[in-house]
Design a protein around this nucleic acid. Sequence first.
DNA 1: ATGAAAGCGCTAACAT
DNA 2: ATGTTAGCGCTTTCAT
Lengths: 348, 348
Amino acid sequence: VVHNHDDLKMRTSFPSSKPTIRDIADKAGVSIATVSYVVNGNGSVSAEIRKKVKQIAEDLGYQQNRAARAMKLGRSEVLGLVIPNLENPFFASLSQAVLLAAESHHYQVFFVGTEGSHETQKTALHRLAQQGVDGVILFPVDESEAIGSYSLGIPLVVLDRELEALDLVQAEYYKGGRLIAEHLLQLGHVRFGLLEGPRNVSNSRDRSLGFVEAIQPHGQLVWRETHPYTLALTHTAKSLLVQVKQMGVTAIVCGNDLIAMGVMQYLQIEKIRVPDDVSVVGFDDISFAHMMTPSLTTIKMPVIGMATAAVDLLAHRINEGWQQLEHQRIILDVKLIVRNSSAPPISR
Amino acid sequence: VVHNHDDLKMRTSFPSSKPTIRDIADKAGVSIATVSYVVNGNGSVSAEIRKKVKQIAEDLGYQQNRAARAMKLGRSEVLGLVIPNLENPFFASLSQAVLLAAESHHYQVFFVGTEGSHETQKTALHRLAQQGVDGVILFPVDESEAIGSYSLGIPLVVLDRELEALDLVQAEYYKGGRLIAEHLLQLGHVRFGLLEGPRNVSNSRDRSLGFVEAIQPHGQLVWRETHPYTLALTHTAKSLLVQVKQMGVTAIVCGNDLIAMGVMQYLQIEKIRVPDDVSVVGFDDISFAHMMTPSLTTIKMPVIGMATAAVDLLAHRINEGWQQLEHQRIILDVKLIVRNSSAPPISR
DNA sequence: ATGAAAGCGCTAACAT
DNA sequence: ATGTTAGCGCTTTCAT
């Protein structure tokens, strides 16, 4: 359906194009330098002229051209943020946190989603570099490609994943895996199913490793299956879930909350009760995790800390000369959040 | 925990700054014009030189400076997208769709979240304009401020909300409300509770209006309460929910899926069964809606269509001179998705 | 206190 | 086919 807004008439006058400092200078009878001083609040300008210029700028609806400014200055005061998938609420929280952290450094953030493809990620990074951002925070789709080789010419901080020769900000995934194992063992679970995240992602491998090592020697890993970080379950995953009871599996450990939510829903369909028949544990603590019924036991990621660390690191590297500094790795703590999806196994 | 990556040595040579066409021209022994022709694939350049220049650009890791290009060209081929809240999955889907649509027009998208504040929205819009984007797609936080008065100097398309003197892309919210009413009436419901979205948002008002009008004359609106578009329920909402049975309410209509999810979780806590005791309906059809137990009956928004329409409209306005065109309003169809959270009321 | 002017990297009209 | 050059809007040094 398409209507024309017949009743909406143009009522503003249309400047043929955006006003520049030149326009303001002409109108105020001063030089463009003076206007620039006023706009940026430096230089010494008499109160009178300052006021006049400000007024005219206001009247004209002047907007500073940041591209021109950046060109002159050699920096844009803009950061790029590259995220694999906007639809995962975890990334939404993280992005939000990055935005906030960047603000306190007076950086603006440009934001790109790569939807899990290397190709998109690569072009996104290049586009950002071409656009002149001062630095990039990258949450890589995975680790199968050496990002360093893209050689953007600008500093790059990597979140969450292991990549050579770059600054890194991570969480203690291994410990997260251990915490889950310890929690479940303590509840009395012995036989586990593991629905882990993609293998080509170190955080996923670390989570699994922590878990698998920590259930030794008493726990048994009955099955272990790789699964994408999505709500929709794979066929294999479903077939494993249907038989949990037959296999005596009493706890299912998932690579992230999305998988866990998929699992819980599927179990409900199959009339397998959580946590009575089987406990389910996630990873990330997205906001939906505590809204599930039952609410999801999971690992809380240090989202704010990661964002802050990444921005701080990046800002530092931008200002201190990014090539000279040692590469840093910052690792942040995770926390176990016990909710209702985990409980002692009901002995039969 | 902070480590230095002692083992990671610098192994690349560091160009003191990013290479420009000047650098390439010098190295190739040609003029910068020729390099520009090669880079942009126009002009007439001999195959030999073209090849040579390309090679050198590659070797130097040349990245076109889009800010300079934009300055010269008067357009950046970048669009801005302003979204009120990244954490609502509906916006994630929408953003994703906008990204895709923009790509087909060879536009890049810069992406800003405003977290529901007018102040942030205003600065976001200005920043985008200053940064030189060619146009903006805005999903306003609400309609209480006249966006037009920001006078950005660039075309602006508004998604989903009613704002004067601008191009609009919307969905048939009113019809969505009606569909819900008809569905529930058909199931045999008579007494309803309405947990509607904020009043200062037209889409919310339209949803409610459609519903309220369509339950006439047989349906009864037992209570009606305004609620923010969030998972977390207000105190009032909870108090209304606890008494649904006493009040004989058999169906609760929610302003969006987030509210509906909050409602379903709270009902579960209160041992009020969905849909046996009470039916629940949402609006948006976010991906989590069908993952709930029971899965959520809701209205599917034309996300792809909205994104495509918005980008098309914006691109058209950018290219055809944005001030001259009539303002357009595009309204897209919505669909009822019946799932398991709605069922006939159990007669007592 | 104010202004003139150079130059950031690029494109394209206009030479040659 | 290739080169010269003006100028996009801005900041800032260096004059005055």
